[in-house]
Design a protein around this nucleic acid. Structure first.
Lengths: 336, 336
DNA sequence: TTGAAAGCGCTAACAT
DNA sequence: ATGTTAGCGCTTTCAA
């Protein structure tokens, strides 16, 4: 720890202590860390040794006050308990760590309001943001970006850096697959309206369904959860569709559970396709789904952000990550 | 955002700006936020109005420099992608938020080294820690706690505040359940040695097995992952046990997948029990498991930490959360 | 190559 | 009830 144990009480080690031990001025100590090239190597070594010795840890707050840079970034997600996000967060954390940044985590609980609050408070101590699936309106996102460099994941705001997991390929494959199996009526268990992913998925599904001459039934769900998936089953069954595409695997899994409880055989009586491939391999039967490399999305976003922070050069990159249908065991021809 | 748009460039709003607008001194502005009770309500209102107007956001770094308090806490976990942790992190974040704290997330990637680094860097900008399943040695944990109040989850260090998910009841029920079904030889797919949970589980299993006259085979796994669970299957099968208890649901799920791939019928040919109830309902067949309220653990830990931070009164509380066997579909009598 | 001094935004005595 | 002042730990001109 960064402490001098004088008496009983731990005490922070400052550059002043190091300066005393190394017999140099505080500016020299500071330079030994930030601009070692300006110092005699010998001096740098002496200072570093003293610092290591005392267990010195840089006081970010103090540095921030003086430089305006914090050495922190924030990643904010709608729901860290949704399995889509942890791998993303993990990538961000890991890259940030490698570049010497600490990371704040914000969980907006799926609401724009909480997200706005988080982002505004966090903005006072971070150099930049990764906003995953933000629920905020465009204007506030733009304001935020003007204030701190911001990289979006799964949100398409013109002029901002963003990485998008593009559901097009995967979903089109899914629709064609269902059509070729003989399905004519398909339900989409929709996600939150504020989510770009949901909007994009509706859009793609609608045109793909039209192209394959499928009838598409949209079932509104709100917050994507296993319970929501379970709750959707009555209306799905009443609607008479023979196949279901769910907003994500969590919803699909809930649906699967409820279907099993009702004794509906999958895929014989109903075909089911999830999204994101977060749980799919572990369900039973194994869920057919659309891939979504959330870890990769996180990596890319972190990379872009860290790059902007280190070079100072803003980007408007729009990176796209392709998806594909992952065939497993929950699709079959419709019952006759 | 906390900006004055002078020209094109966003500019931070400080208490100086507010002071000017409200026609008071900077200390008055400061007090309007930290000690409004010392001011005339009218003054407070005027200052607040000006602040809101300008979009003022407190500069945490500056306050921290002056008070030594940061308004941040950190939660560090071995692996945020392990489904045990997100609910815990979510609870911590949510309570912290409600008390006006921001939260740093640290992911130690299951190594004591990275954990030490994280904790040491973070310690320069947080008021306290929630360490979930820390891999650090006791001494460093004690040092950390001396430096910043620390609450442990699933780690039992004397004299520190900690909340422990006590596997005893659940595991004993599991063992008795297996014994009553007629099993005589059981394997334990062990977790990381650095983990208190694993140690405790071994310990409980050993005595429970002895009490039920079961033979216990311990299979070492290292990092708990689905792959590890898969990889353990050959040795499990070679060992000739008729039932398996896995360190956690992730491992159990991997095992389940591999077993299915090998055409082993569960539970007819082999009984399987997971731990933590993180995935269990979604597997197929639905996994029998041991409950583990990780969200509750997070809530409790956050509560204790926030309490210490607000009262200044350190605790050594040792809170224990009970577990129980959750019977689902992966246990049956051994094949004869 | 190094030191001295000022200042980042805020809080906390101490005055008034 | 409010203003003045000094200072938190660090970086950064400016001098030497």
């Amino acid at each position: 720890m960064a402490t001098l144990r004088r008496d009983q009480q731990p005490v922070p080690v400052t550059i002043g202590h190091i300066a005393a031990v190394a017999g140099v001025s505080r500016s020299t100590v500071s330079r030994a860390f930030s601009r070692p090239d300006l110092l005699r190597p010998e001096t740098v070594a002496r200072v570093r040794a003293a610092a290591a010795d005392l267990g010195y840890v840089l006081n970010h707050a103090a540095r921030a006050l003086s430089t305006g840079r914090f050495g922190n970034i924030a990643v904010v997600v709608p729901d860290i308990a949704n399995p889509f996000f942890p791998p993303l967060v993990r990538s961000v954390q890991s890259l940030a760590d490698a570049s010497g940044y600490e990371v704040f985590l914000g969980d907006s609980d799926e609401t724009a309001e909480r997200e706005a609050g988080l982002v505004s408070r966090l903005s006072a101590q971070v150099d930049g943001f990764v906003l995953a699936a933000p629920r905020l309106d465009e204007e506030r996102i733009r304001e935020l970006d003007a204030w701190r460099p911001t990289v979006l994941v799964n949100r398409d705001v013109d002029g901002l850096a963003r990485v998008l997991i593009e559901p097009k390929d995967g979903l089109e494959q899914a629709v064609r697959h269902l059509a070729s199996l003989g399905h004519r009526r398909v339900a989409y268990l929709a996600g939150p309206r504020e989510s770009w992913s949901d909007g994009r998925r509706r859009q793609v599904l609608e045109s793909a369904a039209a192209a394959s001459r499928l009838e598409l039934e949209v079932v509104e769900l709100g917050r994507p959860s296993a319970d929501a998936g379970r709750g959707a089953i009555p209306v799905v069954r009443a609607s008479g569709v023979t196949a279901v595409i769910a907003f994500d695997d969590v919803v699909a899994q809930g649906a699967l559970t409820e279907l099993a409880a009702q004794g509906v055989r999958i895929p014989d009586e109903l075909s089911l396709i999830g999204c994101d491939d977060t749980l799919a391999a572990g369900t039973s039967p194994a869920l057919t789904t659309i891939s979504a490399a959330s870890a990769e999305a996180g990596r890319t976003a972190a990379h872009v952000l860290l790059d902007v922070l280190s070079t100072g050069r803003r980007t408007q990159e729009r990176v796209t990550i392709a998806t594909r249908l992952v065939l497993r065991a929950t699709t079959a021809p419709p019952p006759r």
